[in-house]
Design a binder for these strands. Sequence first.
DNA 1: CTTCATGCAAAAAATTTGCATTTTG
DNA 2: CAAAATGCAAATTTTTTGCATGAAG
Lengths: 133, 133
Amino acid sequence: MEYLINRLKEKSLKVTPQRVAIAQTIQKSGHVDIDEIYSIIVKSFPTISLATLYKNINSFLEKNFIVEVPVPNHKTKYELVQDSHAHFICTRCGSIKDISLDENRLLSSVHKDKGLGKFERYSFSLYGNCCSE
Amino acid sequence: MEYLINRLKEKSLKVTPQRVAIAQTIQKSGHVDIDEIYSIIVKSFPTISLATLYKNINSFLEKNFIVEVPVPNHKTKYELVQDSHAHFICTRCGSIKDISLDENRLLSSVHKDKGLGKFERYSFSLYGNCCSE
DNA sequence: CTTCATGCAAAAAATTTGCATTTTG
DNA sequence: CAAAATGCAAATTTTTTGCATGAAG
């Protein structure tokens, strides 16, 4: 928690109880969507509003404190900005697993021929089905 | 166009004029969101409704005729299912460029240690800024 | 001729906004 | 203090649904 507060400060995000609660929820869950965050937080923090949640998610995204993880057939999930990794995403149940990777190898797989612009980040996701079917 | 009609049939999607128009629009534009498709198609096809567009996009997705390309800060775009490639996505203007890649190399970059499930497809996107700023 | 697509209007879901009040740095 | 965050209600945007009609295989 001290850690999260410091991360918020590093990103010049004012530290409010709501923000700490949101950050903790995302950290604890790993990958969560807005509604999941809301229903978790509202238990310990009954006054929080969805509007506040949306506003903070947007601030967090702008300040690169979190990133979006879009999930087909499900609401977009969010995770804290972390060391690079890939995702295994189940398109049936929407669950996400982190997969470690060799970043150099990954990046060497793209053909940088045609003046590929500079990029700030990347995402690599594998889609499958981890459920019955 | 004959090509698109055959693709639709292959995927057991009934061939309607609306579907052909949507498929052509996606093919021509490469990467487009719903509103872009609508405003392009409505010119040559004034009776088409947004509801039909949404329904067809969903059918196309289910039948793996198209795939989603989520774009931060913008509406999700769609492209025809194609040979594998990466995307360079501008988070400012939302434009997408296809990048060719070495698929074997890409896939060899993930650590498949822990019984990583089978996957059906993947996506690899680089995010940057192709505009001024 | 049966199954599915279309298009309309309406409903539902998701997200954003304005504003008065409080909190943070 | 000044600047920014909160929470409410309301507005807006995005997407889905029901249903009568028409088209596709």
